[in-house]
Design a binder for these strands. Structure first.
Length: 348
RNA sequence: GGAAAGGUGGCAGAGCGGCCGAAUGCGGCGGUUUCGAAAACCGCUAGUGUCGAAAGGCACUCGGGGGUUCGAAUCCCCCCCUUUCCGCCA
């Protein structure tokens, strides 16, 4: 008997290990495709700015304005980091504040301030582990990992709990730094602050009912799009094909903002429904009343998340889109109240 | 994480074993010229440490650290950084 128990334990562990590396299947509506080339442009908003001069890339504009310092950041931490200074640092802070205020005041989210270090189990709850261990920063002497996105602590907040159906949807927003090893990042698309090991992001997360999760995803996406629209930044919506959809996602829309200095689209948000994939791992359930009025059986919630938005690429897009011939940058109107009324960033 | 090319004075850029602390161009500074300016022409112009009242001297520095050599910016090894291609992502 004991031997059988032991055998069962081993087999269960093997089964579990296998299940943990299985991806979430995509929704039927997701276009079939092999890789990013097969993604579908689902919409485009705004008009790309035109210039009477040759627009510069942010890695020229930022340092010239004295608001971005790549060289000293490298001195402090190696490649893949940036120091924001003066108006640059304040602009980043303004974006974070305005994003959070918009989500909480206009879109009904509850703001969270969460730990940046989490356990391996928490990482497993949202699917970062075991598959993406090599992308995470780990602590040497403690079993804690630095979060690669606020999605991890926020989605796991109610792990193991059974929520009341009446509470759903639970909508959270949080600002955190995100730490990513980006093993091997180099080349085009990585210059300047396009991709760094540490960046700030405001995330939005929903815990919702299965029957509404897809339309909720579209609502969530709309919240992220609203920010770009208010900033006056042209963007497009990409529906990822099956081959490009992430490990745990069942359906993902990317928002890509226009980089006027490099003539490129930059991903600033990725909005996904994980259906019950994360909920199963994190044991995240809700209970609805049964047909007979008695409490029903617990069911897994559906989890959604999206960036709203990632900071560095918003900064890039703002600097490049609003640059002037003299190298100064006009501040988008919605941010001015957060910058003490400043209308223009110029070299001091 | 893989592959390639690179890192030289404020900037650009040559030099690839001794003639190199380093051509040339731009910029900067001073001068000639001019009523003044521009242009042109002439001269000066790397950094740090240290000594000196100053003029100037000395030492170290061609991404960093080792090595080869009588001698290294130049050759070899390791590391860091930058750019580009692949991959992965916000």
């Amino acid at each position: 008997m004991a031997a059988l128990d032991q055998q069962r334990e081993v087999l269960e562990r093997q089964l579990n290990d296998t299940l943990l590396v299985l991806p979430n299947p995509c929704l039927a509506s997701v276009p079939k495709g092999k890789d990013a080339a097969d993604n579908v442009v689902a919409g485009e908003w705004g008009v790309k700015p035109t210039f009477a001069f040759t627009p510069k890339a942010h890695w020229d504009l930022g340092p010239a304005l004295g608001i971005m310092d790549f060289e000293r950041a490298t001195k402090l931490s190696g490649s893949g980091f940036v120091v924001l200074r003066g108006a640059g640092a304040r602009l980043a802070r303004a974006l974070v504040s305005w994003f959070l205020d918009t989500h909480t005041q206009r879109h009904g989210y509850t703001e969270l301030a969460v730990p940046y270090l989490v356990t391996a189990q928490t990482m497993q709850g949202t699917g970062q582990l075991p598959k993406f261990a090599d992308q995470l920063y780990a602590c040497k002497d403690d079993p804690l990992l630095l979060i690669p996105t606020a999605e991890v602590p926020v989605t796991n907040l109610h792990a193991g709990e059974i929520l009341d159906a009446a509470e759903l949807p639970v909508k959270y927003t949080a600002h955190t730094p995100c730490f990513r090893r980006e093993a091997g990042a180099a080349g085009i698309g990585t210059r300047g602050m396009t991709r760094v090991h540490q960046f700030d992001k405001v995330e939005v997360v929903w815990l919702t009912k299965p029957e509404s999760s897809y339309t909720d995803l579209l609502t969530l996406r709309g919240h992220a799009e609203w920010l770009l629209q208010q900033l006056g930044l042209p963007y497009r919506v990409l529906q990822l094909c099956t081959g490009d959809t992430g490990f745990g996602s069942a359906c993902t829309f990317d928002l890509e903002v226009w980089s006027a200095g490099t003539n490129n689209w930059l991903e600033v948000s990725s909005c996904s429904t994980f259906t019950d994939f994360q909920a199963r791992r994190a044991n995240l359930r809700f209970r609805a009343p049964g047909a007979d009025g008695k409490p029903g059986k617990p069911q897994f919630v559906h989890t959604l998340n999206g960036s709203g938005l990632a900071l560095p690429r918003c900064l890039i897009a703002i600097l490049e889109a609003y640059q002037q011939a003299d190298g100064s940058v006009i501040v988008p109107e919605v941010l001015r109240p957060y910058l003490g009324g400043t209308e223009r960033i110029a070299k001091l």
